[in-house]
Structures are given as structure tokens and as C-alpha cells.
Amino acid sequence: MTSRTVLTKRLSRDTLTTPQTGSVAKGRRNTMLRWGLYAILILFALFYLMPLFVMLTTSLKSLEEIRTGSLLALPREITFAPWAEAWSSACAGTQCEGLRPFFWNSVLMAVPAVAISTVIGALNGYVFAQWRFPGANLFFAAILFGCFIPFQVVLLPMAQMLGLMGLAGTIPGLIFVHVIYGIGFTTLFFRNYYVTIPQELVRAAKVDGAGFFRIFFSIFLPLSLPIITVSVIWQFTQIWNDFLFGVSFSGPGSQPVTVALNNIVNSTTGVKAYNVDMASAIIAALPTLLVYVVAGKYFIRGLTAGSVKG
């Protein structure tokens, strides 16, 4: 959304500055162009929002209403019962405690994994961008390569590894896997951000007497808010939404919310409770939405930082 807003802003600014010399007809054509643009954008927005609309309305209907009413209709009577059930009593397999325990599993997994992978990425990026060492390019290529290894490839060796480390089926095990998988991306983010910081800054700090960590904490970290936001949003979304690692490496007590959501939707007793399923799905998706809403504006800024000067 934000990138579209930027586009329309730029267009409107252009249309505002040009008519000074142009004719009235040209100004009118620009206005029509702008309205056309808005119409297209609104159309796309509606299209993309449709599933969310269906999910939200269905989750607020009773089962009775879902059976009799239309898919797109607004609820006649709003009920929050499906939400309560999804949160605390829906059955995932044989366990009927709702999403709540699994939601906290996901929090316990995602928060440390995001924090650790971001910190390691920041340090890696700092080294690759500012402390070149022989073979640095090779190392960086290897780390980058890690971004492109499909999850399925590592399932078996990782299971073996976690078993050897005694972390199989535990939340720390999942944290470990996600940190390893995240380092490639976070390193790339931070390295590309820090490359835009002039080397003379490091040199000046060296002459001033600062060492490796002092330069990092006093000079680089305070500059890093935009890229930390990018890293956190990216990692949080990846880790929170991950299903494959969650289903492969978790035990009965450590399943993340995505796995539980799958189990709730798939374990039915007779009638399919669409409203509970929809409520569960929204609950499972809320944290990533929230992170983006809170920090979204830094996300775009961080992704484009350094690409254009000034």
C-alpha cells in the first residue's frame, strides 16, 4: 500500500507543477488520468481485501447463519463465540484447549529467534561492509547462498543435528533452526545497509581510538533503526508463518500456532465449524499484521535506504 501511496503522491505532484505552462485541456486530461488511476487502485484494493472480508464476516456469524446465508453477506447477528472457541476450546487433534497454548509457543519461539538472528545479522553485516578480510567475498557468497536453499533439503540433516544436540521436539530447537535459516537474510540486509555508510567514518573512529565493538555500538547501531525494522518484520513474518519446520521439528508441547491452526481446521467432528476456522486463522495471522502496521513505514524506508541519496 505504502509504495502505491508514494506513486500517487509523485504523480499528483507532477500534475500540480506542470499546468502552469500547459493548456487547460492538458490540466483536465491530467485530472481524468488521476481519477482513472484511483479507480484502478481502489479496484485492486477491493480485490485483495475480499478474502479478509469473507474471513472476518464468517468468523462473526453463527454456524446456522453460515449454512443458510450467502458467503458475501454481512452477519445478521454478530457473535464472538467462534473467537472464544478458537482461542480457548477448539480441538486440535485430541487436545481441546484452542489456539492459546500454541500461540504462546509461537511467541516463545519467534521473539528470541528474531532477536538472535537480527543481532547476528547486524554483526555479520558490519564485518562484511566495513572490516574486509581476505576471502570476505567468498564468505558472503556462501551466506547469501543460504537464502536460496529450500527448506525441504535440510529437513533430514537438521532433524539429525537437533537429535544430536538434544534439542529435538523443543522450542529452543525451533529457535535454533530459525536463527540458522534467518542469518542469510539478516546478514544481507545489514551488509547492504552498512555498505552505504562511508568508510571514512570507521577510519575516523579508529584514529579516535575506538575498537571493533565500540565503533559498532557507538556509530553503527544508532544509525540502524530502519534496517533493524526491516530485519525484525521480515524475520518475524517468516518465523511466525513457518509451517514446515514447525511441523517437522516440534513435539507435542512445542507446536507453533501454524501447526495448531492446521490441526484445528483438519480435526472435525461432524459439522465443519467454518466460523471457528476463520477466527483461528485470523488469530494466527494477527501478530504479523500488527508488526507491519506498527513498523511498516520504517520497512519501506529501510528497504530503499541507500538506494537513492538525499
Binding site: 562511508p198 571514512e200 567514518l201 577510519r203 575516523a204 573512529a205 584514529v207 557507538s218 544509525l223
Partner: peptide, 11 residues
């Protein structure tokens, strides 16, 4: 040392 870009710590 005084640098060409001044290299002042921006934050």
C-alpha cells in the same frame, strides 16, 4: 586526522 568527507558521527 581530518577527513575529506569530514567523517562526523551522524547520530
Amino acid at each position: 586526522m581530518v577527513f575529506q568527507s569530514y567523517a562526523l558521527y551522524p547520530t
